[in-house]
Design a protein around this nucleic acid. Sequence first.
DNA 1: ATAATTAAGGACAAAAATATCCTTTATTTT
DNA 2: AAAATAAAGGATATTTTTGTCCTTAATTAT
Lengths: 147, 147
Amino acid sequence: MFSKATEYALRATIYIARKSSEENKLGIEEIAKAINSPKSFTAKILQKLTANNGIISSVRGPGGGFYLSSKAQKRPVRDILHVMEEDGVLGKCVLGLKKCSEAMPCPMHAEYKGIKQQLIQLFEHTTIQQLAHDADKIIPLNKPARH
Amino acid sequence: MFSKATEYALRATIYIARKSSEENKLGIEEIAKAINSPKSFTAKILQKLTANNGIISSVRGPGGGFYLSSKAQKRPVRDILHVMEEDGVLGKCVLGLKKCSEAMPCPMHAEYKGIKQQLIQLFEHTTIQQLAHDADKIIPLNKPARH
DNA sequence: ATAATTAAGGACAAAAATATCCTTTATTTT
DNA sequence: AAAATAAAGGATATTTTTGTCCTTAATTAT
């Protein structure tokens, strides 16, 4: 469904949401290991997600790393797709027609329509935080101890 | 959702289903033009779909071309995906985890599960013929006159 | 100030997907 | 039999995606 880059973006963001805070940032080494992705490639992706006040926050230098602000936690998962320039796939025609619409439907349009709507809804209404919480309920992560 | 190759495969197969018969075969030139795809690349894809008594039938030489047997018409759309080695995407984990399952769910598993099932059902239960008929109802094609 | 740490960014490499071209093979028509 | 037609198949080119490596910039600790 999505490119590897976007899969890594989703996995990384959710992992950061689960384990980091402004007081406890995560390094690229740990993140890539945890989500099982190539380190340097993942670094590029996090750069994208961090750029111009993006979804992920980052700080350089010792004690630095990546974290998610509580504001960012509340953003819909779709925002990650948008940064990765793949939010288009959600609304895209299954047969790849550029002009597929209600007025000019492709042969699969009627059959696929409902699923497409659910997909868009899912990514629009689900927040990063929700996924992080859901995941925590099932497989708790070692979170940093509070001071 | 699918690769270009698979999109072309779906479009081509549906077009052939709509316009061809054993008595009236279609050439690669016409098919590629009709579905707006690169000719030689599409030829490769049709080769795949034709190989070892596959979905599409073909005959070489004058009067030859591609067509769909009435038996092939009744096959599920999923068979096309299978030949293109992309039926995996239907059941795949959204986050790209290889071991995502009920027992070891990814953070999106619960949310995506229902959509995934619908997707599989759609491609499994919809036949090529159904799509061809649906499409004909909306935008009729110039079909060859019967003798 | 200097050294150490960590993300940012540029350049490059490898692999996969997409696309084209040319030759060969099968079939029909002349 | 020869010529013409149309798919099959091989070789190669182009583009995109994925991945690596090295240098630069920012920040902190010594």
